[in-house]
Design a protein around this nucleic acid. Structure first.
Length: 467
DNA sequence: ATGTCC
């Protein structure tokens, strides 16, 4: 089905109802796994959606999802093209934030590290169904949905400098609370400031390698530095909104003569009332997720102050990897749906935040639990994928299969000296054996000429939430 | 990913 064009680049040729070609960025060793799940079929489905533009793309961490595969990028021409809730994903604005600390990793004894982990667990509720305990936080929900991180700054949960390092400045315009159901609002109030479960985590990491010294320094990264990476999203709120709107869009589709190949790709024209309403809801939820990572940062700063006497944690960057954005490509306005894909703007791109205009922004790519994380920078060739890169390693095994096939000792061996807050048996589905090889995935995007490695971090301790 | 099927 895939035709090799050159190393790390494959064509999924237009056939059947596909309106455009597909392209998959993948190392040859990553190809066989793509035939073991529905991801290529899902990419073909995406290529048949009304108003799809130029081509659909699969990142090297591609795997089966709901509707659009994880690691999928699909753009639609505006205003006549469609918007799809399933192509954004359940966890709207799931994303990653990287923080530097004023400490060197080697300054921390194992005992100190252990105490740090317990303190983080005390401050940040982690695990499926975990709720925040503070009335004052729940009260912030309406402002957070409309004003994003800015609303938190006004209440003292952050500093002005934080905004300069968050994608979109921590707020997307166009949110409307009326687009959210009572259930969604209630789940949002409970979920604000919580980590969640699944692949979400807080990691204490050490910068172990710098590949681009000047760029790393511009990003605030130095060898040996202790860093904190936060991976979470919009919790039950995003799930609720995706579920509700998939149903709404699925029912409304025929009214606009939009027929979709799978319910997960339910879509309506962007300019339709339902389309506009989903976009207003998605933006509100995206603002919530940026704020969620900000609130967790506030807790982390308290923890560092309490445990180590200095809570000066500075943002390297905060980015979304499940979202749809209005962008200009080939001088056309399109809606780029990225699901498990990171926007990656090269040097000089005008959509960069002022802090990164000259250099291009850091692209934060976590590995799987216990493996390295990468900071990349996109090259000018990134226009190939609508300025998109992968979002992580990508699953190679379903959660169910992982629990069945991976043993506690497999996971313990993979973790080695790395501290884990949870019992290994509680997070077997997150074992690195359930994921693709992050080094190979990164080699793919660098080999394809889409990005270069700036810095590499390795985990010292992992905080996970239980399912 | 998710109050993992109100």
């Amino acid at each position: 089905m895939l035709e090799k064009i050159k190393d790390n680049l494959y064509l999924l040729p237009k056939q059947g109802k596909m309106q455009v070609d597909g392209y998959v960025i993948a190392h040859s060793k990553l190809i066989p796994a793509l035939y073991n799940d529905e991801s290529l079929k899902q990419l073909q489905n995406a290529a048949s959606i009304p108003g799809v533009y130029r081509a659909v793309y699969g990142m090297p961490d591609l795997h089966e999802g709901f509707g659009l595969p994880i690691g999928g990028v699909m753009a639609t021409v505006l205003p006549e093209g469609v918007i799809s809730a399933g192509a954004v994903g359940m966890d709207i604005n799931c994303g990653v934030r990287l923080l530097t600390t004023p400490f060197a990793a080697r300054e921390l004894s194992r005992e100190r590290l252990r105490k740090l982990v317990s303190a983080i667990e005390r401050y940040v509720p982690a695990g499926v169904g975990k709720k925040n305990r503070e009335k004052e936080v729940r009260k912030l929900l309406p402002q957070v949905l409309v004003h994003g991180v800015r609303a938190l700054l006004e209440e003292g949960y952050g500093i002005e400098e934080d905004l300069a390092k968050i994608e979109e400045g921590g707020v997307m315009p166009g949110a409307d609370l009326k687009a959210l159901s009572e259930t969604a609002l209630s789940r949002g109030a409970e979920g604000l400031g919580t980590l969640g479960g699944g692949n979400h985590f807080i990691e204490l990491q050490e910068v172990v390698e710098i590949r681009e010294k000047q760029l790393a320094e511009r990003y605030g990264l130095y060898p040996g530095q202790l860093c904190v990476m936060v991976h979470t999203g919009s919790r039950g709120l995003g799930h609720q909104v995706c579920t509700e709107y998939t149903e709404i869009l699925y029912r409304a589709g025929p009214k606009y003569r939009v027929n979709v190949p799978a319910k997960g790709l339910a879509a309506v024209p962007f300019s339709s009332p339902e389309g506009k309403q989903y976009y207003q809801a998605m933006v509100a939820v995206a603002n919530f997720a940026y704020a969620n990572r900000q609130l967790i940062t506030y807790y982390l700063r308290l923890v560092f102050k309490e445990q180590l006497g200095d809570g000066k944690l500075d943002l390297v960057y905060d980015l979304a990897h499940n979202i749809a954005k209005i962008e200009v490509h080939d001088e056309r306005t399109v809606l780029v749906h990225r699901k498990g894909a990171t926007r990656a703007l090269p040097a000089g791109h005008r959509a960069n935040l002022p802090a990164f205009k000259e250099t291009g922004h850091p692209v934060l790519i976590p590995g799987s639990m216990g493996t390295k994380s990468y900071v990349l920078r996109a090259t000018p060739q990134i226009t190939l994928t609508f300025n998109s890169l992968n979002h992580g390693a990508g699953r190679s095994m379903s959660r169910k299969a992982s629990i069945k096939n991976i043993t506690v000792s497999d996971l313990k061996q993979a973790l080695g000296e790395i501290l884990l807050n949870e019992k290994p048996e509680a997070v077997l589905d997150e074992a690195p054996q359930a994921y693709k090889d992050i080094d190979l995935v990164i080699e793919t995007v660098t080999g394809a000429g889409l990005a270069e490695v700036v810095a590499i971090l390795k985990p010292l301790a992992v905080i996970k939430g239980k399912d």
